[in-house]
């Protein structure tokens, strides 16, 4: 069995994001990039699956500039077996359609995979559609926003939260799953894992090798910061707050 985890290289969630001088992009100077949090939860789920069956091969993929290999090295140290980087500097400006097509080419060339995990949302671009898109295009079963997954025979048993409550579902592999926050903590790489990772491969793929033409159907124009908030007015007691609810917010 082979599992593919696709994560996104994103600015650290603790970072304040600023704009470049001409407002055409974010200011990337001194910005620390990390594995996206949902991708990280998905990786933990894959590692838990492998904890129970070490014969499973874990493959990890991301797209980004050359130095994204640091993040892949970290994935290998955690226990992933093989890693791939699709080298593309301008990846944050790709439309979901273009990004999906790149992933599809990769899957066709380097697959098959029994399970493909994706983040429930790419937190940089705010795309939620890649999972459904891949499933539709490849005609594979899919479930979005799962919180846990286990393998039983050739099925995955997954849980997720919906507006109705908690669901437990059984899905036949091959399948594509997008991952929400998991109810467990993410492991750290062990010293042994870090040593072992040095021998594991990081394969760099040029976009040209995937024989894909990037067409931009969604063109990102200028960026701006959200409107500044007005600033806080401190109130002294409950009576003053009630006055605000009545006279300013007008809900009482």
């Amino acid at each position: 069995m082979r599992i593919l985890n696709i994560f996104k290289r994103v600015p650290d969630t603790y970072a304040e994001i600023k704009l470049s001088k001409d407002n055409s992009d974010i200011d990337k100077e001194n910005l620390n990039y990390v594995i996206d949090p949902y991708g990280e939860y998905a990786m933990e789920t894959s590692l838990r699956i492998k904890d129970k069956d070490s014969s499973i091969e874990l493959v990890v993929l991301t797209i980004g500039p050359e130095n994204s290999t640091e993040l892949l090295r970290n994935a290998l140290a955690l226990g992933f077996d093989i890693s791939y980087l699709i080298k593309y500097e301008n990846y944050e400006k790709l439309s979901p359609l273009a990004l999906s097509k790149i992933y599809i080419k990769f899957i066709e060339k380097y697959g098959p995979f029994d399970i493909i995990f994706l983040p429930k949302v790419d937190i940089d671009t705010n795309f939620h559609s890649i999972c459904g898109y891949l499933a539709g295009y490849l005609n594979i079963n899919f479930i979005t926003s799962i919180t846990t997954a286990e393998i039983v025979d050739n099925h995955a048993i997954v849980e997720r939260e919906t507006s109705m409550g908690k669901e437990k579902l059984k899905i036949k592999t091959p399948c594509i799953l997008s991952h929400d926050k998991a109810p467990y903590e993410i492991r750290l790489a062990s010293l042994k894992g870090i040593m072992l990772s040095k021998k594991k491969p990081i394969n760099i793929i040029e976009l040209s090798e995937l024989e894909i033409k990037i067409e931009e159907h969604i063109i990102r124009n200028t960026l701006r910061l959200p409107p500044q908030r007005k600033g806080v007015k401190f109130l002294n007691n409950a009576d003053e707050l009630i006055k605000v609810l009545k006279e300013e917010i007008k809900i009482l």
Binding site: S95, P96, L97, S100, N126, F127, H128, S129, I130, C131, G132, Y133, L134, A135, G136, Y137, L138, F142, T144, S145, T162, S163, H217, I218
Partner: peptide, 22 residues
């Protein structure tokens, strides 16, 4: 909504559509 996104992102895949949410 997440339920609509689940249905319509799949629709995007089968119809080769542009998908732009939120």
């Amino acid at each position: 909504t997440s339920s609509a996104i689940e249905v319509l992102s799949y629709l995007a895949g089968i119809t080769n559509a542009i998908f732009f949410e939120d």
